[in-house]
Simulated assay, not measured.
Amino acid sequence: MITAICEFDFSVITASFSGALCFIINARCFNKKQKRVAFFISFSMGFIGADVSLDIINSLVPAINTEERALGAFVCSALIITVFIRIKSLVDGTFTKK
């Protein structure tokens, strides 16, 4: 019998939700439908990318060196859409120059 163990870390969920809300409140370049999509992407990526962003934070700022996944979830969900938009504009800029 296969059992799936699904362990929810509510601090990570709350931090991801908070980071997504911070981004949506400050985002002025989206309409209502785009804000909903951006919120969903930001929230889900904060939950998924918590460990990766925590590793990046620990390598960039070694004085922090924490294992708190909630910090990674908050930073990831607050910044993922902005990073994606910046990368998209860089890629679009290089394609239009050629």
Rank of each mutant, 00 (worst) to 15 (best):
A78L: 10
S89N: 10
I81K: 08
I24N: 09
V91W: 10
S59E: 14
A27M: 07
M45G: 01
C29N: 13
I48L: 11
P62W: 08
I13V: 10
M45Y: 08
C76T: 00
S42K: 02
F23M: 11
A50K: 12
I5R: 11
C76H: 06
E7W: 03
C22P: 01
R36H: 13
F17C: 13
I48T: 05
A20I: 02
V52T: 10
V75G: 09
K35M: 07
S18V: 01
A70V: 03
G49K: 09
L79A: 12
F8T: 04
S18H: 01
N65H: 10
E67W: 02
D51E: 10
L21C: 15
K35W: 00
I85A: 08
V52D: 03
D9W: 05
M45Q: 12
F84M: 04
F43S: 04
T82C: 02
L90M: 14
S44I: 13
I24P: 00
T3R: 13
I57W: 05
T3H: 13
I85Y: 11
G46T: 00
A27Y: 13
I24V: 15
D55E: 12
R36V: 03
D51F: 12
K32A: 10
C6H: 00
A70N: 03
P62T: 00
I81A: 05
I13Y: 13
R36M: 14
C76G: 00
F84K: 03
M1V: 04
T66S: 15
K32H: 09
K98P: 12
V91Y: 11
G93N: 06
T14Q: 08
T14D: 07
A27K: 09
I81T: 04
S44M: 14
I13G: 03
S59K: 15
T94H: 12
V83Q: 09
R86V: 05
G93Y: 06
F40A: 15
N26R: 13
A20C: 02
C76Q: 07
S11T: 02
I41G: 02
G49Q: 06
F95D: 06
S53M: 14
D9N: 11
F43Y: 10
S89W: 10
F39S: 09
R69S: 06
K33T: 14
F17T: 03
T66K: 02
G46R: 13
K98V: 15
T82Q: 11
Q34V: 03
V61D: 07
S18F: 03
T14H: 14
F23K: 08
E68H: 04
N65V: 00
I87E: 09
A78K: 03
S59H: 05
A73P: 02
S77N: 10
I13T: 01
S11H: 07
N65C: 02
E7N: 05
C29Q: 12
G46A: 09
I57E: 12
T14A: 15
C29V: 03
V12E: 07
A27V: 10
V75E: 08
F8Q: 06
T96V: 00
A27R: 11
I48P: 06
F84R: 01
A4W: 09
K32F: 14
A4P: 00
N26I: 02
L90E: 07
I5G: 01
K33Q: 15
C76D: 07
V52H: 13
